Simulated scan of single mutants.
Amino acid sequence: MTDPQNPAEPTPPGAQPAPPAYSPQPTPPVYSPQPTAPPAYGAAPTYPQPYASAPPPAYGPPATDTVPGRTMGIVAFILSFFIQLVALILGIVALVQSRKAGQKNGFAVAAIIISAVLLVVGIIVGIFVIIAVSAAAGFATDALAACQAVGFTGTVTVHGVTVDCSTINP
C-alpha cells in the first residue's frame, strides 16, 4: 500500500493511513433549464406549470351555530344568577327555538330552572324584608309617640321592649 500524501513511499504495515489533504469542494452547478427546441410551425407552445394545485385553505369554514338558540341559552344561563326575570324569558325563547329545530338545549333548561328558583326565593326574601322594615318602622313610630307622651324623659315600654326616651332626638 502506498502513502496517499506521497505515492512514491510505501506505508509501513500496521500504520494508519494519513488523512487526505484538504481540497475545496467544487461549487454545485447553477440550475438552468435546458433549452427546448422551438415548437413546430403552427403548434401551440407548451409551458411548464408553476404550481401543481392551489394550496388547501388554512382553516375550515366558519363555525355555525348548529343548535338554534344555543347561544341565547348560554347567555340566559349566565344571566340567571344576576337578572332572573330576563334570564327566564331568554331561556324560554332559546328552548322554543331549539325544540322547533328538534334539538336539545341544556343551557336553556338550566337557565329556566335556576332563574325560576332564584326568582321565587327573591320574592320570598323581599316579602320578609318588607315585613321586617314595616315592623321596625311601626315600632319606631310607637316608641316616638310614647316618648312624646312622657316628654322625652325617663323610659317607656313599647311592645314589651323598654326604650330610654333620653336617647331619642325629636
Score class of each variant (00 low, 15 high):
T2D: 10
Q5N: 15
N6D: 12
P10E: 13
T11H: 11
T11F: 10
T11R: 15
P13M: 11
G14S: 14
Q16G: 11
Q16M: 13
P20Y: 12
S23N: 15
P24W: 01
P29G: 06
Q34M: 11
T36N: 12
P38W: 07
G42Y: 03
P48K: 08
P48C: 06
P57L: 03
P57I: 01
T64S: 09
T64P: 05
V67K: 03
P68I: 00
P68H: 00
M72Q: 10
G73M: 01
V75M: 09
V75Q: 08
A76P: 03
F77N: 12
I78F: 09
I78N: 08
I83Y: 08
I83F: 11
Q84Y: 11
L88V: 03
V93L: 09
L95K: 08
Q97L: 07
Q97K: 13
S98E: 02
S98D: 01
A101D: 04
Q103D: 12
F107Q: 05
A108L: 04
V109D: 03
A111L: 02
A116D: 06
A116L: 10
I124W: 08
I130V: 15
I131L: 13
I131C: 06
A135H: 14
V150F: 04
T153V: 10
G154R: 00
V156M: 02
V158S: 00
V161W: 00
T162K: 03
T167C: 06
